[in-house]
């Protein structure tokens, strides 16, 4: 019994370390990545999407985030806005 428990723990430790691979399409599912460039693995946010997401998180306020976390989110929002300005100006 002890042996089995130890082996199970060992196997579990290994399994959590393996990266999760994206689920493959089923035979009846559309591949939205190939079809419309949506939901592709490794797709990154544009700067506008990043700004929108940060604004949405800041809006959640102290119900979700601590004051320190909100401060951090605001700093990231300012950084993203500054980045957009830097890209477009001068």
């Amino acid at each position: 019994m002890k042996k089995i428990a130890v082996l199970m723990i060992a196997v579990f430790s290994m399994s959590v370390a393996v990266p999760v691979f994206a689920a493959e399409m089923t035979k009846t599912q559309k591949n939205e990545c190939l079809l419309a460039s949506k939901g592709c693995a490794g797709q990154a946010d544009t700067i506008q999407q990043k700004i929108k997401k940060l604004q949405a998180e800041v809006k959640k306020g102290t119900k979700v985030y601590s004051p320190d976390e909100i401060k951090k989110l605001n700093a990231k929002l300012k950084e993203a806005n500054d980045l957009l300005d830097t890209l477009l100006q001068h």
């Binding site: 723990i9 060992a10 290994m14 370390a17």
Partner: peptide
């Protein structure tokens, strides 16, 4: 010993620090 060995194996197979690559432009 077995659990420690398995844990160590698991630890080295997890990246120590992820590098985030961010691209933007105009």
């Amino acid at each position: 010993a077995i659990v420690t060995a398995a844990g160590a194996l698991a630890a080295i197979s997890v990246p120590a620090m992820a590098l985030e690559n961010e691209f933007h432009g105009m």
